[in-house]
Design a protein around this nucleic acid. Structure first.
Length: 560
RNA sequence: GCGCCGGUAGCUCAAUUGGAUAGAGCAUCGGACUACGGAUCCGAAGGUUACGGGUUCGAAUCCUGUCCGGCGCGCCA
């Protein structure tokens, strides 16, 4: 297909509207006038538009009359079977069979590129996600962020953005000291000299701290018992960070998440980036000294209050790091920066947006995705978790229990900014309620059809143009075709809204449309022409379903 | 106290960003092909979109007030 049908319709409508506006001596902004959508209800046609309703007032005409006027002016197109005015002034389009034929050959020809769109226009975007402090293993909450960030990156890349994935390592600051002390104290405890180093007040109490201390004792023996604890602390700290980070990397890679860049917070302080950033801000009047500290004038960008960048004791704040870090991001040439944060950080957004503006960028150049908490359920009961006591369910445990596919699917099943109930029993069940299996089963079933067709010697790879797809007239067939046809549009929306859950929903609905079709009609063993047409449809379904699963990072099994 | 997010069927959630008769799954009830995989399908029932007011051709969606829930408001990270 040279041009998407929706594009053709949009052009026709634009033309008609401009003509009408011209006759009435009004000027319309050519860019913004035509919205075209796929109606919910099938009897409202294949496509619909509400332009007549939107522009009725401006053009000084009643919606219905305007709609009729527009319809009268629409040029004939081979894709259009019927155009009618409905309701308060909607214009509904029914497409001709040629459209179906073109669509299916298009899918089969383009294969996994069928849904590719170009909302990104080649611009560069960075998705920074997970970025958990290296103070302990990843837990389920991080897992959701990992899935959402990764899928988002997949979608953006498929939608024409040039994407880079980045993990920000918070390896500077007090938390790292605390981690080092925690490990050190456990080490002395294991060596039966707990009196030499006491466990810090707010130290990390998890069992993994003992494991790290154990490893150190195995590798280094008890040589630190004679050393000055003040001096050996660095060793414990560095060892702990790199050990934990190694575990995090393993967990993520097993989960199918691969980062292009691991960015160290500490590296920000190695050059003069901090000083330069402060200097720039001061020059522009966005930073000032007061009470012995250096402040950021975030109130200049509608934040509640100004924020401290460098404390009066000379130690920069976490926010300072973030300002410098984001400057660094933009300096690397990203047109758009996406931060994936836990929802509890939402109060942080105004100051970060302010910082972005102070750095000379538009607030839209930073997009913050908030990830709400995950509620783990087992046997209908909430699984208790508390980071403070070191009792939490790790991502690794969940993956081991329910598998990668189900874990990713569940994390992407809801809007990311709404709470998620993750039912462990459901996720690992192979029962009918498990949506993961529902979707994967559709794919396996399709492959089963092709295996069967092959063994029967049916012609598998007939060119769609030689197949009479107009034979596909049953409601279940039409519904399936419509679902397939909406894929590019769905990608577009998912990319514009940074909304991975849209793909999950789409895959589920596509699987559903296929199951219905499958149960209502036979693919094989009907007459030859119809069989060929249905094989085409089945093939197209497979292509799109596999791509949707691919974007989600979930396998599309040949058999189950 | 101020701010942000939410409140949709018994439960878990959607809703093309202001569109047409608010949709799915689970649970409940009733059904389906001796044939391509029953991990499937079809149907029924289920709603004053928390509540009141407003904006307009049209509101779950926007503005406003009230109620309920979560979170945030440090020279913490």
């Amino acid at each position: 297909m040279k041009k998407d049908v929706s594009e053709i319709l949009r052009d026709l409508l634009t033309e008609a509207l401009l003509e009408i506006a011209g006759e009435r001596g009004k000027t319309l902004d050519e860019e913004l006038i035509v919205e075209i959508e796929r109606p919910r209800r099938e009897d409202h046609g294949d496509w619909a538009t509400n332009v007549a309703l939107q522009w009725a007032k401006f053009l000084g005409e009643k919606p219905r009359i305007l709609a009729e006027d527009i319809v009268r002016r629409l040029e004939h197109s081979e894709y259009l079977k019927e155009v009618k005015v409905a309701g308060p002034g909607f214009i509904n389009f029914v497409l001709s069979d040629k459209w179906i034929s073109d669509l299916l050959s298009n899918v089969i020809e383009k294969q996994e590129d069928f849904g590719r769109v170009d909302v990104g226009k080649g611009r560069k975007v960075q998705v920074e996600f997970v970025s958990a402090n290296p103070t302990g293993p990843l837990h389920v909450g991080h897992g959701r962020g990992a899935a959402v960030g990764d899928i988002c990156a997949n979608i953006l890349s498929y939608a024409g953005w040039e994407v880079e994935r980045e993990y920000y390592i918070n390896d500077a600051g007090l938390q790292m000291e605390l981690l080092g002390k925690s490990v050190q104290a456990r080490y002395f405890e294991i060596c039966r000299k707990p009196e030499l180093v006491t466990f810090p007040e707010d130290g990390y109490k998890g069992a993994y701290i003992y494991e790290i201390a154990d490893k150190i004792r195995e590798a280094e023996g008890e040589r630190f018992l004679d050393a000055d604890p003040e001096k050996s602390l660095v060793f414990f700290k560095d060892y702990a960070i790199s050990d934990i980070l190694k575990g995090i990397k393993e967990d993520l890679s097993r989960f199918g998440v691969v980062f292009d860049v691991w960015f160290s917070e500490k590296s920000l302080y190695e050059g003069d980036a901090v000083e330069r950033t402060i200097a720039t801000l001061k020059e522009n009047g966005y930073a000032y000294d007061a009470d012995g500290a250096i402040w950021f004038r975030s109130t200049a960008f509608s934040d509640d209050k100004d924020r401290v960048l460098v404390r009066s004791n000379g130690v920069p704040t976490y926010f300072m790091s973030d300002v410098v870090y984001h400057k660094n991001k933009y300096d690397r040439g990203f047109d758009l920066v996406i931060d994936v944060w836990g929802a509890d950080h939402h109060g942080y957004i105004p100051r970060m947006k302010a910082a972005v503006q102070a750095l000379g960028r538009k607030p839209e150049d930073l997009e913050v995705l908030l990830i709400q908490f995950v509620n783990l359920l087992r046997g209908g009961e909430q699984v208790a978790m508390s980071t403070r006591s070191g009792e939490f369910v790790t991502l690794r445990e969940v993956i081991e229990e329910v598998g990668i596919d189900a874990t990713r699917y569940f994390f992407a099943m809801r809007r990311s900014d709404s709470h998620l109930d993750f039912d462990l029993d459901l996720a690992k069940s192979t029962s009918t309620e498990n949506p993961v299996y529902y979707v994967q089963y559709a794919h396996a079933r399709i492959n089963s059809i092709f295996r069967e067709a092959e063994s029967r010697g049916a012609p598998l790879s007939r060119d769609p143009s030689e197949v009479d797809v107009m034979l596909l007239k049953e409601p279940e067939e039409t519904a399936l075709i419509r679902q397939i046809a909406s894929f590019p549009d769905e990608i577009k929306k998912a990319a514009e809204e940074f909304a991975p859950h849209r793909i999950t929903f789409f895959a589920y609905e596509l699987a559903g449309a296929f199951h219905s079709f499958y149960n209502a009609h036979r693919v094989l063993g009907v007459n030859e022409d119809l069989e060929a047409a249905r094989l085409c449809l089945t093939k197209a379904t497979k292509v799109v379903l596999a791509k949707a699963l691919d974007l989600l990072g979930i396998t599309a099994p040949e058999r189950m």
